[in-house]
Design a protein around this nucleic acid. Structure first.
Length: 214
DNA sequence: ACATTAAGTGATT
DNA sequence: AATCACTTAATGT
Protein backbone atom coordinates (compact mmCIF):
# COMPACT_ATOMS: atom_id res chain seq x y z
CA UNK A 1 0.00 0.00 0.00
CA UNK A 2 2.64 2.45 1.11
CA UNK A 3 4.82 2.55 -1.98
CA UNK A 4 2.17 2.38 -4.65
CA UNK A 5 -0.25 4.82 -3.10
CA UNK A 6 2.40 7.37 -2.28
CA UNK A 7 2.35 8.94 -5.73
CA UNK A 8 -1.43 8.76 -5.92
CA UNK A 9 -1.70 10.58 -2.62
CA UNK A 10 0.61 13.22 -3.99
CA UNK A 11 -1.64 13.69 -6.98
CA UNK A 12 -4.63 14.23 -4.72
CA UNK A 13 -2.67 16.65 -2.59
CA UNK A 14 -1.37 18.55 -5.60
CA UNK A 15 -4.83 18.99 -7.03
CA UNK A 16 -6.49 20.13 -3.85
CA UNK A 17 -3.92 21.76 -1.63
CA UNK A 18 -4.90 25.36 -1.13
CA UNK A 19 -8.50 24.40 -1.88
CA UNK A 20 -9.14 21.94 0.92
CA UNK A 21 -7.69 22.13 4.41
CA UNK A 22 -4.95 19.57 5.26
CA UNK A 23 -7.12 17.68 7.72
CA UNK A 24 -9.77 17.24 5.06
CA UNK A 25 -7.30 16.19 2.41
CA UNK A 26 -6.23 13.41 4.77
CA UNK A 27 -9.81 12.22 4.94
CA UNK A 28 -10.24 12.53 1.20
CA UNK A 29 -7.20 10.33 0.69
CA UNK A 30 -8.26 7.85 3.32
CA UNK A 31 -11.80 7.26 2.08
CA UNK A 32 -11.42 7.58 -1.68
CA UNK A 33 -10.24 5.22 -4.33
CA UNK A 34 -8.49 5.79 -7.63
CA UNK A 35 -10.37 5.18 -10.82
CA UNK A 36 -8.42 5.07 -14.02
CA UNK A 37 -10.61 5.80 -17.04
CA UNK A 38 -9.48 5.00 -20.54
CA UNK A 39 -10.29 7.30 -23.41
CA UNK A 40 -13.88 6.82 -24.49
CA UNK A 41 -15.03 5.10 -21.27
CA UNK A 42 -18.50 6.11 -20.19
CA UNK A 43 -18.18 6.88 -16.51
CA UNK A 44 -21.69 7.95 -15.76
CA UNK A 45 -24.70 7.37 -17.98
CA UNK A 46 -28.25 8.66 -18.21
CA UNK A 47 -30.57 7.29 -15.57
CA UNK A 48 -27.76 5.82 -13.52
CA UNK A 49 -27.68 6.33 -9.77
CA UNK A 50 -24.65 8.03 -8.36
CA UNK A 51 -22.94 6.33 -5.49
CA UNK A 52 -19.62 8.10 -5.68
CA UNK A 53 -18.51 11.66 -6.13
CA UNK A 54 -15.78 12.05 -8.73
CA UNK A 55 -12.86 14.40 -8.22
CA UNK A 56 -10.86 14.71 -11.41
CA UNK A 57 -7.11 14.44 -10.88
CA UNK A 58 -5.96 14.68 -14.46
CA UNK A 59 -7.19 14.14 -17.98
CA UNK A 60 -10.42 15.49 -19.40
CA UNK A 61 -14.00 14.39 -18.84
CA UNK A 62 -16.70 15.44 -21.25
CA UNK A 63 -20.20 16.06 -19.95
CA UNK A 64 -23.11 15.50 -22.34
CA UNK A 65 -26.86 15.57 -22.15
CA UNK A 66 -29.44 14.07 -24.42
CA UNK A 67 -32.28 16.15 -25.84
CA UNK A 68 -35.81 15.06 -26.72
CA UNK A 69 -34.85 13.79 -30.15
CA UNK A 70 -32.00 11.81 -28.66
CA UNK A 71 -29.27 14.09 -29.93
CA UNK A 72 -26.27 14.35 -27.70
CA UNK A 73 -25.44 17.85 -26.67
CA UNK A 74 -22.06 18.83 -25.34
CA UNK A 75 -22.23 20.73 -22.06
CA UNK A 76 -18.75 21.23 -20.65
CA UNK A 77 -15.40 19.70 -19.83
CA UNK A 78 -14.03 18.73 -16.43
CA UNK A 79 -10.29 18.92 -15.84
CA UNK A 80 -7.91 18.31 -12.96
CA UNK A 81 -9.14 19.87 -9.71
CA UNK A 82 -12.74 19.89 -10.92
CA UNK A 83 -15.64 17.94 -9.60
CA UNK A 84 -19.01 17.29 -11.11
CA UNK A 85 -21.70 19.56 -9.75
CA UNK A 86 -24.33 17.36 -11.33
CA UNK A 87 -23.29 14.39 -9.26
CA UNK A 88 -23.34 16.55 -6.14
CA UNK A 89 -27.03 17.27 -6.62
CA UNK A 90 -27.74 13.71 -7.56
CA UNK A 91 -26.04 12.44 -4.42
CA UNK A 92 -27.95 14.68 -2.08
CA UNK A 93 -31.33 14.15 -3.68
CA UNK A 94 -30.78 10.49 -4.57
CA UNK A 95 -31.70 11.38 -8.14
CA UNK A 96 -30.87 9.68 -11.39
CA UNK A 97 -28.21 11.18 -13.58
CA UNK A 98 -29.39 13.63 -16.22
CA UNK A 99 -26.06 13.56 -17.93
CA UNK A 100 -23.46 11.28 -19.41
CA UNK A 101 -19.79 11.60 -18.50
CA UNK A 102 -17.26 10.28 -20.97
CA UNK A 103 -13.49 10.26 -20.59
CA UNK A 104 -12.12 12.39 -23.39
CA UNK A 105 -8.57 11.31 -22.68
CA UNK A 106 -7.14 8.72 -20.35
CA UNK A 107 -7.96 10.21 -16.97
CA UNK A 108 -7.49 9.60 -13.29
CA UNK A 109 -10.39 10.25 -11.00
CA UNK A 110 -10.58 10.08 -7.25
CA UNK A 111 -13.88 8.50 -6.24
CA UNK A 112 -15.46 9.35 -2.90
CA UNK A 113 -18.43 7.55 -1.39
CA UNK A 114 -21.27 10.04 -1.38
CA UNK A 115 -21.99 9.74 2.30
CA UNK A 116 -19.04 12.02 3.04
CA UNK A 117 -20.72 14.86 1.15
CA UNK A 118 -22.81 15.58 4.24
CA UNK A 119 -20.30 14.64 6.86
CA UNK A 120 -17.65 16.98 5.50
CA UNK A 121 -19.88 20.01 5.59
CA UNK A 122 -18.31 20.61 8.99
CA UNK A 123 -15.22 21.70 7.04
CA UNK A 124 -15.43 25.30 5.86
CA UNK A 125 -13.20 24.52 2.89
CA UNK A 126 -15.49 21.69 1.84
CA UNK A 127 -18.50 23.99 1.86
CA UNK A 128 -16.56 26.45 -0.23
CA UNK A 129 -15.44 23.72 -2.60
CA UNK A 130 -18.97 22.51 -3.19
CA UNK A 131 -20.22 26.02 -3.63
CA UNK A 132 -17.43 26.96 -6.01
CA UNK A 133 -17.93 23.82 -8.06
CA UNK A 134 -21.54 24.78 -8.52
CA UNK A 135 -20.61 28.27 -9.46
CA UNK A 136 -17.98 27.26 -11.96
CA UNK A 137 -20.25 24.75 -13.66
CA UNK A 138 -23.12 27.19 -13.69
CA UNK A 139 -21.01 29.79 -15.40
CA UNK A 140 -19.71 27.34 -17.94
CA UNK A 141 -23.26 26.30 -18.64
CA UNK A 142 -24.31 29.89 -19.21
CA UNK A 143 -21.46 30.27 -21.67
CA UNK A 144 -22.52 27.16 -23.51
CA UNK A 145 -26.13 28.29 -23.60
CA UNK A 146 -25.05 31.66 -24.93
CA UNK A 147 -23.09 30.05 -27.68
CA UNK A 148 -26.00 27.87 -28.72
CA UNK A 149 -28.58 30.59 -28.55
CA UNK A 150 -26.71 33.54 -29.95
CA UNK A 151 -23.67 32.46 -31.87
CA UNK A 152 -23.64 31.41 -35.47
CA UNK A 153 -22.21 28.05 -36.27
CA UNK A 154 -18.83 29.40 -37.37
CA UNK A 155 -18.39 31.15 -34.02
CA UNK A 156 -19.56 28.09 -32.13
CA UNK A 157 -17.07 25.95 -33.99
CA UNK A 158 -14.18 28.32 -33.34
CA UNK A 159 -15.11 28.46 -29.67
CA UNK A 160 -15.31 24.69 -29.59
CA UNK A 161 -11.82 24.38 -31.02
CA UNK A 162 -10.42 26.83 -28.49
CA UNK A 163 -12.18 25.03 -25.62
CA UNK A 164 -10.85 21.76 -26.84
CA UNK A 165 -7.36 23.14 -27.16
CA UNK A 166 -7.56 24.51 -23.63
CA UNK A 167 -8.91 21.33 -22.14
CA UNK A 168 -6.31 19.07 -23.68
CA UNK A 169 -3.47 21.57 -23.40
CA UNK A 170 -2.53 20.75 -26.97
CA UNK A 171 -2.72 22.47 -30.33
CA UNK A 172 -3.57 19.20 -32.00
CA UNK A 173 -7.13 17.96 -31.99
CA UNK A 174 -7.59 14.42 -33.20
CA UNK A 175 -11.19 14.22 -34.28
CA UNK A 176 -12.99 13.72 -37.54
CA UNK A 177 -15.28 16.39 -38.94
CA UNK A 178 -18.09 13.92 -38.34
CA UNK A 179 -17.26 13.68 -34.63
CA UNK A 180 -17.32 17.44 -34.26
CA UNK A 181 -20.54 17.70 -36.23
CA UNK A 182 -22.20 15.23 -33.86
CA UNK A 183 -21.11 17.19 -30.82
CA UNK A 184 -22.38 20.47 -32.17
CA UNK A 185 -25.52 18.87 -33.57
CA UNK A 186 -24.94 19.76 -37.16
CA UNK A 187 -23.91 17.98 -40.32
CA UNK A 188 -20.45 16.97 -41.35
CA UNK A 189 -20.64 19.02 -44.54
CA UNK A 190 -21.23 22.20 -42.61
CA UNK A 191 -18.28 21.53 -40.31
CA UNK A 192 -16.02 20.71 -43.25
CA UNK A 193 -16.93 23.98 -44.95
CA UNK A 194 -16.45 26.10 -41.86
CA UNK A 195 -13.16 24.40 -41.03
CA UNK A 196 -12.00 25.07 -44.57
CA UNK A 197 -12.84 28.73 -44.07
CA UNK A 198 -10.92 28.82 -40.78
CA UNK A 199 -7.99 27.31 -42.61
CA UNK A 200 -8.20 30.00 -45.28
CA UNK A 201 -8.19 32.55 -42.47
CA UNK A 202 -5.01 30.85 -41.22
CA UNK A 203 -6.47 30.06 -37.83
CA UNK A 204 -6.05 26.32 -38.19
CA UNK A 205 -4.46 23.66 -40.38
CA UNK A 206 -6.38 20.64 -41.56
CA UNK A 207 -5.24 17.05 -41.91
CA UNK A 208 -6.97 13.73 -41.92
CA UNK A 209 -8.30 12.99 -38.42
CA UNK A 210 -6.42 15.97 -37.09
CA UNK A 211 -6.76 19.70 -36.71
CA UNK A 212 -4.01 22.01 -35.59
CA UNK A 213 -4.98 25.26 -33.94
CA UNK A 214 -2.47 27.99 -34.74
C1' DA B 1 -4.61 -3.17 -56.45
C1' DC B 2 -8.86 -2.63 -54.20
C1' DA B 3 -12.11 -1.28 -50.52
C1' DT B 4 -13.18 1.74 -46.97
C1' DT B 5 -13.43 5.94 -44.65
C1' DA B 6 -12.53 11.03 -44.31
C1' DA B 7 -12.81 15.29 -46.38
C1' DG B 8 -13.93 18.85 -50.21
C1' DT B 9 -17.37 21.12 -53.20
C1' DG B 10 -21.27 22.78 -56.34
C1' DA B 11 -26.04 23.06 -56.55
C1' DT B 12 -30.49 23.28 -54.37
C1' DT B 13 -33.69 24.39 -50.74
C1' DA C 1 -27.48 25.90 -42.29
C1' DA C 2 -29.05 21.43 -44.17
C1' DT C 3 -29.14 17.97 -47.71
C1' DC C 4 -27.86 15.64 -51.90
C1' DA C 5 -24.86 13.98 -54.98
C1' DC C 6 -20.55 13.48 -56.36
C1' DT C 7 -15.28 13.91 -56.29
C1' DT C 8 -10.86 13.50 -54.29
C1' DA C 9 -7.59 12.09 -50.89
C1' DA C 10 -5.81 9.12 -47.24
C1' DT C 11 -5.53 4.77 -45.11
C1' DG C 12 -6.16 -0.14 -44.34
C1' DT C 13 -6.00 -5.05 -46.24
Amino acid sequence: MALVSKSIEEKVVNNFKGILEPKLIEEVIEHGRLHHAREGNIMIDYGQYMKELPLVLNGTIKILRKDQEGNELFLYYLNGGDSCAMSMTCCVGDKKSEIRAVAEDDSEIWMLPIRYMDEWMKYKTWQAFVFNSYNARFEELLNTIDSIAFLRMDERLWKYLLDKKQASASYIITKTHQDIARELNTSRVVISRLLKQLERDEKIELYRNRIEVL
